[in-house]
Design a protein around this nucleic acid. Structure first.
Lengths: 232, 232
DNA sequence: CGACGATTTGAATAGGATCAATGGGAGTGG
DNA sequence: CCACTCCCATTGATCCTATTCAAATCGTCG
């Protein structure tokens, strides 16, 4: 794996201030692999052998307990996952599977920790990355503890809408079943939540959602930057 | 504030590998204050001016949205809170109030970030601390997404029981209303959940809970180390 | 003793889950 | 190109969980 293969990886906040030679060393230890859809990449409880970076495709993070399963997050290019487990040399708390054919970069945990020890700038970048991830989960936790299912959906729609340009229309980025699980509800309940939002100007056609009037939707959703806005 | 004032602070994982002089500098910038019970220390949305360390007493982290409020966590000596906001120079995502008369050490954010820039060992400690906090929230998030209220209570009781020696009896560490909010339910529902657990050998008398038979309780709770166990 | 707050209990309601059945593409094979 | 199949999404009916509102009880503290 040569450094020049991945300018996008290099440009990740996590790596950009790393020294060239340390980055090179890290990349030389890494593997680039393409996986088919629906392949389980990691399984919760297993030791964290690799840090994963999604180069192409999409990865779902999920967790199981008892007989239940819930989607914990989605990772799209260029994004990393399970950094915390790698740094702590602990077991994964979440499982991960591809939801499309995906190109993934795997960096052995040991090498990440070594680079973390050797490269001061990298250690600092990791702090900021971890702090962002941490705040992300806190926001999700607030979302689920402080809002009803319909409110969570309304706010999520507003977020996707803003992300996609805010021109009155948005495309759902994942299967509805996945979105339902992300939002902590069943697919049936998601479907009903969409119906509940119809009087608020939400029109669903497959994966396309049209928002004909933001005002009433925002009144219902009461978006809160301390929950809905992504950190810098 | 002199270094020798706080051997316990120095011994925090966060500070123990910091250089003596940097630690001294940090402590000299810090304030030690005693606050009465029920005082709001920080308010979500405000800029993170200080890193807080609980020396004595107890602090509740909570969040509000819409008209609702939920307890996000409790901090006891010697524990820090809102490290992530301080490092990112961002606003607090949670509010905090004392739940007893408490002695708190406040370190100006700027000084923490300065130490983080200057002291390599400190930066590394922060990474491990943040990674632990991150994994803690992920576990709470799994808890609430994968379990019913009764299951959450059962597992929490088992955790307190183990923490307190596992001799068949435990004391609830907080008000029932607080525990209810921590577990994501109403006080009424907590009361009913206790009743539901009665046939499983759970006997409640005020803040004292007796577990007469762990087997059936564990069968119901299905404790999962990837949710219930604290990280090292 | 009296007052207050916390907890518990009861009744009614709402929110969400489950089970079952139907409709609707997307992809496959003829 | 069409029929078939499969999976996803939707809808309906019902059940269960949890919230809300109200009232009673308990304990503590002055």
């Amino acid at each position: 794996m040569r450094t020049t293969d991945f300018p996008q990886v290099r440009s990740l906040r996590l790596f950009e201030s790393m020294s060239e030679s340390n980055f090179e060393t890290l990349m030389q230890a890494a593997y680039l692999q393409t996986f088919p859809s629906q392949l389980e990449l990691i399984h919760e409880g297993d030791p964290a052998d690799f840090l994963y970076i999604v180069i192409e495709g999409c990865v779902e993070l999920y967790a199981r307990s008892n007989g239940r399963e819930s989607t914990m997050g989605m990772v799209r290019p260029i994004g990393t996952f399970i950094l915390a487990a790698v740094l702590k040399d602990a077991v994964y708390l979440m499982s991960a599977r591809t939801c499309q054919k995906s190109k993934i970069l795997l960096i052995p945990s040991e090498n990440v920790r070594e680079a973390f020890e050797k490269d001061e700038a990298f250690a600092r970048s990791i702090v900021l990355e971890l702090a962002s991830c941490y705040r992300g989960v806190v926001k999700e936790h607030k979302d689920i503890k402080l809002r009803t299912a319909v409110e969570r959906l309304a706010n999520r729609l507003l977020r996707y809408h803003a992300d996609q340009g805010g021109n009155g229309s948005l495309e759902l980025p994942y299967d509805k079943r996945t979105i339902a699980s992300l939002l902590g509800m069943t697919p049936e309940n998601l479907s009903r939540a969409f119906n509940t939002l119809k009087p608020y100007g939400v029109e669903v056609d497959g994966a396309v959602v049209k928002l004909s009037d933001l005002k009433p939707l925002e009144t219902l959703a009461k978006p809160n930057p301390l929950i809905d806005e992504r950190d810098a």
